[in-house]
Design a protein around this nucleic acid. Structure first.
Lengths: 187, 187
DNA sequence: TCCGTTTGTTCGACTTGACGAACACCGCCG
DNA sequence: CGGCGGTGTTCGTCAAGTCGAACAAACGGA
């Protein structure tokens, strides 16, 4: 019985599979063969009947070349613009550092985008986030000392660094008006 | 047969469930109750036995408050640094535009990070990517006209825009040395 | 100590997903 | 036209996931 997922999960998966299959230009028969499942099973799944096992769904994801999450998470998007200076910003420590959340993906956030603007001063250390997160940092202007708290790296304009977000990490602007982008990836 | 996922998917899920459950500080009994599944089922799943249905796994993901992908995708990461000018770059159109792939997440890529450096010239139009992708664009320096091909937006330093990547879109630098970051999100 | 609660386990019965064959349908070519 | 290769469907059978109860073990209090 489980929790009826309020919106019909099965129907969603059915639509996703069909959509991805047609996008890939595969016939139902062909996809079933590639995924190693019976075409009858696939037919029923696309009809919104049944409740596939993870292995079945995984095999379909592999055969379709899509991340599998694509098959269970709902569709989306649109166009958004956030002008410099706009958007919800969080400031800290004498305004020497500000982060603006540009994008998050409720309800099942998987990747947040932050715009960073910082001034030289005390380094900003962040406590570990949820396990499994990765932070991607790209310097726009200025210089910064950033990365894992125990071994930060000095970065200049255009430099990029990725590091575990589930461990203590730091960001310290070395020049005035240092800007950066942080992609916080929640896996 | 499917593609045997080379690494044991079931075992992975088993470990993930147990890990997330303990992280949430829930007992097996409690979690089973919240997820609305039999605790025997949960017990078997954590033992690496069986092949749960998506509804079962979904219910667990909801009860655990995790994105569900967390339960099926493997762990990870490390620290990477790509200096400005380094990294694989793709150039186009008289080098007026260059994109550097900073991060992708094989085997199940979900989000690619590009560093863009462009000069004024012919606008660069991109054909639609895989269905469901979203592009996040953040201007670092300079100005650009970017967004959906049919209605691009003029952007300045720090401006942010998100738009569907599965529809034609464009990027045109309006000033010399226009830099930007693109997060290509594959859902 | 005994009792109650909670832990996670194992067991039989029921339900259901996955399979493969047989099916109807369509387009094509001889 | 009649056969052929392709589409996606339905159906009966078997295997397997799910359930609920009964279970042993560990903990806490009276």
């Amino acid at each position: 019985m489980a929790e009826r997922p309020s919106f019909d999960l099965i129907t969603l998966i059915a639509a996703s599979i069909r959509r991805e299959r047609e996008r890939a230009g595969l016939s139902l028969t062909e996809l079933a063969k590639r995924a190693g499942i019976a075409k009858s099973t696939l037919s029923q799944l696309e009809s919104g009947v049944g409740n596939p096992s993870v292995e079945t769904l995984w095999a379909l994801g592999v055969a379709l070349g899509v991340p599998f999450s694509r098959l269970v998470d709902p569709p989306r998007p649109a166009v958004r613009v956030i002008r410099a200076g706009e958007g919800p910003a969080t400031y800290s420590e004498q305004a020497s550092y500000s982060a603006t959340l540009l994008a998050s993906c409720p309800p099942h956030a998987r990747r947040d985008l932050y715009r960073i603007s910082a001034q030289p001063g005390r380094p900003r250390t962040s406590d570990p986030h949820m396990a499994g997160t990765v932070e991607h940092l790209l310097i726009g202007t200025g210089r910064a000392l950033a990365g894992p708290a125990e071994e930060p790296v000095e970065l200049g304009p255009g430099d990029y660094i990725a590091y575990p977000g589930d461990a203590p990490h730091v960001f310290e602007a070395l020049e005035p008006d240092t800007t950066a982008v942080i992609v916080m990836e929640h896996i």
